[in-house]
């Protein structure tokens, strides 16, 4: 896990909700070049960590640095423009809009991130042009070309999630935060999603941090795993190490048995 520059550096991150500490002084570093899995039983604080990293929540204390720059406390949109993209469970935002147009819009929305940007017509036109070119290339990468002209709302659930990844990629991130990419997918779709994420990492060089319940997928896909329980890191390392980690086994299996 050692690398000269850590891409994402989390220090003493703390966040509580009305007296309940959801994330308790978590620290970790992500080196460039990995797919990292964030796992843990329900209520372990995974989603809260995600929301803190993506700027949807503001930490009570602690720092987050991305490529050497502090990003804690910045708004979600600013963090997105800094190069961290997040893909959501469902990505169909616009009514009566095709799959292609969804990807195009995802690609140029950051060019109109603030209202004043609407006035810079020439810059926006350039961004739109670039977003269109990128969308064509992404349609092939995502294997969604056959559905490019369909209304995105009519896509099957599995394809909607792939579109979600595609829209995140359209923003040209350097780190992708994937929120339960396989949740609700059948085994075939899960394999497709796993393959897609692998290609995102190895063909495009985009690092991935993912939260996922499907442990098999996590063990197969990730080259590093951070296990959380009750808001704290209990195990951290390559899948083989974490799999056999004492604390991890008790927390996970214990919690599973309890529920």
């Amino acid at each position: 896990m050692t690398s000269a520059v850590s891409q994402l550096s989390v220090r003493d991150l703390l966040r509580s909700f009305g007296g309940i500490i959801a994330v308790n002084n978590i620290s970790f570093d992500l080196a460039a070049g990995h797919i990292t899995g964030l796992i843990g039983p329900n209520g372990a604080g995974k989603t809260t960590v995600f929301n803190l990293l993506a700027g949807s929540l503001v930490p009570d204390s602690g720092t987050v640095q991305f490529e050497g720059q502090p990003i804690n406390g910045l708004s979600a949109s600013t963090i997105a423009r800094r190069g961290i993209a997040r893909c959501f469970q469902s990505a169909t935002v616009f009514r009566n809009v095709t799959v292609r147009e969804h990807i195009v819009r995802a690609g140029y929305l950051k060019a109109i991130g603030r209202p004043v940007d609407l006035l810079r017509r020439r810059r926006l036109a350039d961004h739109k042009k670039a977003a269109r070119d990128r969308a064509e290339e992404l349609l092939d990468f995502l294997d969604l070309r056959h559905a490019a002209d369909r209304d995105a709302a009519t896509l099957a659930y599995g394809h909607q999630k792939i579109l979600g990844v595609g829209m995140a990629l359209a923003t040209q991130p350097r780190l992708l935060l994937a929120d339960e990419p396989a949740a609700g997918l059948n085994p075939v779709e899960t394999t497709e999603m796993t393959e897609l994420l692998r290609r995102v990492r190895y063909d495009r060089g985009i690092d991935i941090l993912l939260v996922e319940h499907d442990l098999r997928l996590v063990m197969k896909l990730c080259d590093r795993i951070i296990a959380l329980n009750a808001g704290a890191v209990i195990a951290d390392g390559p899948p083989d190490v974490v799999r056999n980690d004492e604390a991890f086994i008790t927390a996970y299996l214990g919690a599973d048995h309890a529920s």
Binding site: G55, S77, A80, A91, V93, L109, G113, M167
Partner: peptide
């Protein structure tokens, strides 16, 4: 485009870089 996104799914819109 921005306004429709704001109404439908503001969190996603923000994650695409829009200052909601």
């Amino acid at each position: 485009v921005v306004v429709e996104g704001l109404e439908r799914n503001e969190a996603l819109q923000s994650s695409l870089g829009v200052n909601a």
